[in-house]
Design a protein around this nucleic acid. Structure first.
Length: 636
RNA sequence: GCCGAUGUAGCUCAGUGGUAGAGCAACGCACUCGUAAUGCGUAGGUCGUGAGUUCAAAUCUCAUCAUCGGCUCCA
């Protein structure tokens, strides 16, 4: 018998007889590993555990700790769910069933839509299949065999997938029990490997994600190798739900949505404080970075939007009105307004770059089903700016914007990554100009030495863009900042500057936002901080709590002193026990509480209690004020 | 816009054909209290809206609006 050499992930080399399977090898290496092994990579290719090893190989065992192992595990569970659905609803036709971030889904074409109760039935059927411990068996078929097999079964979606496979594709199927599915694999060895399964939700989803296609029924689920891991996951979901900005927004009285204005948020007094703090900081920083603030009208005539190209590209998402029989549109973007200001006078090359910043309220008619709290609205404020510059200033300006964005995100403790989006199908301008603009963005990112991902075809219709995706404290990412380079608008609006040579030249434009949408950014901040904002943003920074009504006058004095010092404070002088007032202030997530009893009144001091840290001892008022002011200063 | 679900008091929810309920919050009274809920009492809803079925509708049917979970979209 000839031996073959296997290089393991840790670099060690072992010898096995030809034909030994991956599963045997994992058993040989370690019993623990064999139990946890879900999939393997052989010479870099993912394979089933049953795959025999027939050549000198590099073998990597994947467990549930690997993303790839998880994918195999969840994808196998998707097959099992499909089998369960087939058992219960034999008329079902099958779409696709991939693993996703925290689980998997499978799309089904069923004669009658699932009802929520069906999920429990399907779960019970899945449990039966797990107990049967069917092996996952792989077999390869020719294209003709595959087509014949799935056509006979009436699996029109599978047939469509097979037809779309490349000519030379190896077509494989997996069978567990009497259920067969088209699949590239790999899978776990047997259905019994899957331990803790939960079906999460039911939704409609278009076949192949195209709204022109039939809407299938999608079931989302997840699976873990242990019940405790599943429980932890469900706990994490519940924790995330607790920070939902819609729930906290109502509880903290920051904003509301009303039936009378779907997608148009109402900001309450406390929400406005938060918002104004953000805007004040924004103004302060933009002034420092050489921006000039402007404001342009919300309604502008149709001709302007035809000229900008928005009419052609986005009129179905715009709001319109008529004034004196003339068509007007509510602005979906701020750039045309900014451009009109640029055009209002002649510019010398010496004036450039000109950075015009605008907190611009825009309206976009989003589909009703897409609305989501502050995250997806129909009117929002972009912290927009347009930079008009010489072609030679492009890289420097983009780098400047990147530095500004970096500074902003760090203030809130956000990590971020950047992505570069290139020319979309629906684009204006020549390939040559697009290449030039895309190269300019690449050059700027590379100047900053940042890693980036490229999204082909994801750019704006007028130019390529850099997007900034920030990561919040529970690991979710949000696209916020964007820098878009634009050679088209200057052309369409005939923008010019007078050069050194006395001739008119074409400037280049940058569109950029830092927060993106103020409303959405507030939503992200609410979830990021779980409503417990840093002192500088907290709507109420200090709550003064009286122990008895003998503390009332001193508390009011403290409040007015804090007010004079620019610190936002409220007095709770109700006839309630101190414990009750503390509990309420804590639930309101106020950063500081000052407890005022007889001792404090007598000594003219304050007993400080800090959110999350408890009792911080007794201080003289001026000292407390100094500390709070320092904390506010440092956070910015 | 599409698929599914939901809509009852300020909030969280119970109420499956016979004149609407609880807890918390609010308000009143008592208690003047030292670091996460003092006690007692009072008030509060044309059950999202509009039609229909029925002797009778929160409850059944239809339409409509809004919200929630997805899909699609996000200049």
């Amino acid at each position: 018998m000839s031996k073959i050499k296997i290089t393991l992930k840790d670099g060690s080399v072992r010898e096995y007889e030809k034909g030994t399977t991956v599963l045997d090898i994992t058993k040989d290496i370690s019993q623990g590993l064999a139990r946890n092994a879900l999939a393997a990579k052989l010479n870099g290719r993912k394979v089933d555990l049953g795959t025999p090893v027939n050549e000198d190989s590099a073998l990597e065992i994947l467990t549930f700790d690997d993303e790839e192992g998880k994918t195999v595990y969840r994808h196998s569970t998707a097959h099992i769910m499909a089998q369960a659905v087939k058992n219960l609803f034999p008329e079902t036709r099958f779409g696709i069933g991939p693993a996703i971030a925290d689980g998997y889904y499978y799309d089904f074409d069923v004669p009658e839509n699932f009802k929520p109760d069906d999920l429990a039935r399907i779960e019970a059927e899945i449990d039966k299949i797990l107990k049967q411990d069917y092996p996952f068996e792989r077999f390869e078929v020719s294209r003709e065999e595959a087509l014949q097999m799935f056509e006979e079964a009436g699996e029109k979606y599978k047939v469509e997938i097979i037809r779309d496979l490349p000519e030379d594709a190896v077509i494989s199927c997996y069978r567990q029990g009497d259920f067969v599915d088209l699949c590239a694999g790999p899978h776990v060895p047997t259905t019994g490997k899957i331990k803790a399964v939960k079906l999460m939700s039911l939704a409609g989803a278009y076949w192949r994600g195209n709204e022109k296609n039939k809407m299938l029924q999608r079931i989302y689920g997840t699976a873990f190798p242990k019940k405790t891991l599943l429980d932890e996951y469900i706990y994490r979901l519940e924790e995330a739900k607790k920070r939902d900005h819609r729930k906290l927004g109502a509880e903290l009285d920051l904003f509301s949505m009303q039936d009378e204005g779907p997608g148009f948020p109402f900001f309450h007094p406390k929400g406005m404080i938060l918002r104004n703090e953000l805007e004040n900081y924004w103004r302060q920083e933009h002034k420092r970075w050489g921006y000039q603030e402007i404001r342009t009208p919300v309604i502008l005539n149709r001709g302007l939007w035809e000229q900008s190209g928005h009419w052609d590209n986005y009129k179905e998402n715009m709001y319109f009105t008529q004034i004196d029989d003339v068509d007007f549109a509510v602005k979906p973007m701020n750039c045309p307004g900014s451009i009109l200001i640029y055009k209002s006078k002649l510019h010398s090359y010496r004036d450039l770059p000109i950075r015009l910043a605008e907190l611009g309220l825009v309206h976009r008619h989003e589909l009703s089903g897409a609305l989501h709290g502050l995250m997806r609205v129909r009117c929002f404020t972009q912290d927009d700016a347009h930079i008009f510059m010489l072609p030679s200033q492009i890289t420097e300006e983009i780098v400047g914007v990147m530095e500004l964005i970096d500074k902003f995100y760090k203030v809130f403790g956000f990590e971020y990554h950047v992505e570069l989006s290139t020319k979309p199908e629906k684009a204006m301008g020549s390939d040559e100009i697009w290449d030039m603009a895309t190269d300019a963005l690449k050059k700027a990112i590379e100047t900053k030495g940042i890693d980036y991902k490229i999204n082909e075809g994801d750019g704006a219709f007028y130019g390529p863009k850099i997007d900034f995706h920030l990561t919040d404290c529970i690991g979710r990412t949000w696209q916020c900042g964007t820098i878009q380079l634009d050679f088209q608008m200057p052309e369409k609006f005939d923008l010019t500057y007078v050069g050194e040579d006395g001739q008119k030249h074409r400037p280049v434009m940058i569109h950029r936002v830092v927060f993106g949408s103020i409303e959405r950014f507030i939503g992200i901040l609410i979830e990021h901080f779980a409503g417990a904002f840093p002192v500088w943003l907290a709507p109420v920074q200090v709550k003064i709590l009286t122990v008895t009504d003998r503390g009332r006058n001193f508390s009011r004095e403290i409040r007015s002193t804090l007010d004079e010092q620019g610190i936002r404070a409220e007095v709770d002088e109700r006839n309630e026990k101190i414990g009750y007032k503390i509990r309420e202030a804590q639930l309101e997530k106020v950063p500081y509480m000052l407890v005022i009893g007889d001792r404090e009144v007598e000594n003219k001091t304050v007993a400080v209690r800090k959110r999350g840290e408890g009792d911080k001892g007794t201080l003289a008022l001026p000292e407390f004020i100094k500390n709070v002011k320092e904390e506010i200063r440092l956070k910015k």
